[in-house]
Structure formats: C-alpha cells, structure tokens
C-alpha cells in the first residue's frame, strides 16, 4: 500500500508543480544564510546555512502536500471514496507525503550548488553514512508529522492558515533557522520534542571533521518522535473521520 501511494503521488506531483514549489526558495535562502554567516566571519556556521534551507524545504513540502492532498481530494470528490475504501487512510497519507519529502531531497543538490557556484565553497560530508541515515529518518519523521497535521486539515477547510501556523514554530523550535542555543533558555527543552532539532544537530555535525557523538540517541529520538506522530495521527484521524461522518461535513468544499 505504501509503495502504491508513493508511486501515485510521484505521478501526481509531476503534474502538480505546487507540490515542489518550496524547492524554488532553497537557492535564495541558502544564499541569504551563507552571505550573513560569511560576512559575520562565522565560517563555523556554514553547515547551518546549507542544512537549514534543506530541512525547511523538506518539512514545508511535507506539510503543504498533506494539506493539499486533503483539500484537493475533497474538492475532486475522492476524499469520500478514499475513506470508503478498506485501506488505512493514515498509511495512504503517509506514503503520499513520503513521496514528496523524497522529492524534497533535491534541495540538498540546490544548497550544495549554491555554496559551490555562488560562494566557491565545496561542502564536504566527512560522515556520509551518518548524514544519509539521519536524513532518511528525518524524512520518515516529516511524513509522520504531516500525517498528524492532515487530521486537522480534514476537520477544517482553512488548511492553508494552519499549515503556516504550524511550520514556523517547527523551524524555530527545531533550530533550523537559528541554533537552539540562541533561543531563550526556557524554550530550549521544548525544542527536544521536535524531531527537527535532533535532525539539524546531527546533520550539521556530520559535515564537520570531528567524530559525531550521540548518533544513536539522536536517531532513536527522531524515529520515536516519527512513530509517535504516526500513532497520534492515526488516533486523531480516526476520531476526526468519525466526527465528519457523523456531522456530514466530509464532502464539504
């Protein structure tokens, strides 16, 4: 089922440029972040400058497509039919979002090219294995979080507003835009409940030559948070679907 959903979404996204429009922002954000870091003399933060836009693009694509799937399926009259099918809608959503997150990995290429062609910086990945594993785990977590958010989108027809409202707190708490250490102290423990904080730390660490520490703990945290998101998404979506079946608003556009 997951593979069928992935394949379906890849075909759909080929004809829906909006699904991958976040990729257009990656070169610009990378250039802005790199320019700020380099002009401040903070060469040590180059990793932040390239990893930040990548994680932002991938997570915003996940949230956007989750909202878009619900909205466009509702508009096309397919949402009711999907609910009426025997497949678990959470698995379907997760697979479809995962496909778009996988496309979001193209942002890596963009960020690396901007650093190289725009600033003459060749960013090496000394710990490529850690980088790859953490990136893959992050993709699963992004799909999980988007699935959780999708239940909210089923309930409301104002999905876009919620998408924006969800994404920026995620970036800030995840240390994607600014390092977590720069956040107020009282906020820092909260950031550990956001998978992006673990992902960003480990991805940046894998760009530095020194050994990466805390990989197992970080990986476990990302996967646990991903699993928790999917589980919560499943419970919440079941409740939401029952509610819209009860009040008859499932098909309302």
């Amino acid at each position: 089922m997951v593979w069928a959903a992935v394949r379906f979404q890849l075909s759909n996204s080929r004809r829906t440029p909006g699904d991958v429009e976040a990729l257009a922002t990656v070169p610009l954000l990378t250039a802005i972040f790199l320019a700020i870091m380099l002009n401040s003399g903070r060469d040590d933060l180059i990793g932040h400058a390239v990893i930040g836009p990548v994680l932002m693009a991938m997570s915003v694509m996940a949230l956007n497509v989750a909202g878009e799937i619900i909205q466009s399926d509702r508009y096309a009259g397919t949402l009711e039919l999907v609910i009426a099918a025997p497949a678990n809608i959470v698995v379907v959503l997760w697979g479809r979002v995962l496909a778009v997150v996988a496309l979001g990995m193209l942002s890596l290429v963009e960020a690396w090219l901007v650093a190289w062609l725009g600033f003459g910086i060749v960013i090496e990945v000394p710990h490529a294995g850690v980088f790859a594993v953490i990136l893959a785990a992050s993709a699963f977590a992004m799909a999980g979080t988007a699935t959780l958010a999708a239940s909210l989108f089923v309930l409301t027809r104002r999905g876009f507003a919620y998408r924006v409202a969800i994404s920026f707190p995620l970036y800030i708490l995840g240390g994607v835009i600014v390092p977590i250490a720069f956040l107020p102290e009282w906020l820092q423990p909260l950031s550990r409940l956001v998978y992006l904080s673990w992902s960003a730390d480990l991805l940046r660490a894998s760009l530095r030559p020194e050994p990466v520490t805390g990989v197992a703990l970080g990986l476990l945290a990302i996967l646990a948070l991903a699993f928790a998101s999917v589980l919560m998404g499943r419970r919440l979506l079941a409740w939401v679907v029952d509610r819209v079946r009860s009040d008859g608003t499932l098909a309302q556009v």
């Binding site: 069928a4 759909n12 999907v82």
Partner: peptide, 15 residues
C-alpha cells in the same frame, strides 16, 4: 491529472 490506468491501479491498492 492522472491516466485512467494510474487511477485504477491506485484504487486497486486502496482496495
């Protein structure tokens, strides 16, 4: 936006 075959294969997976 998808083809007839893609539609049917997707619905088959949902069933």
């Amino acid at each position: 936006r998808l083809t007839a075959r893609q539609n049917l294969r997707y619905w088959a997976a949902l069933y």
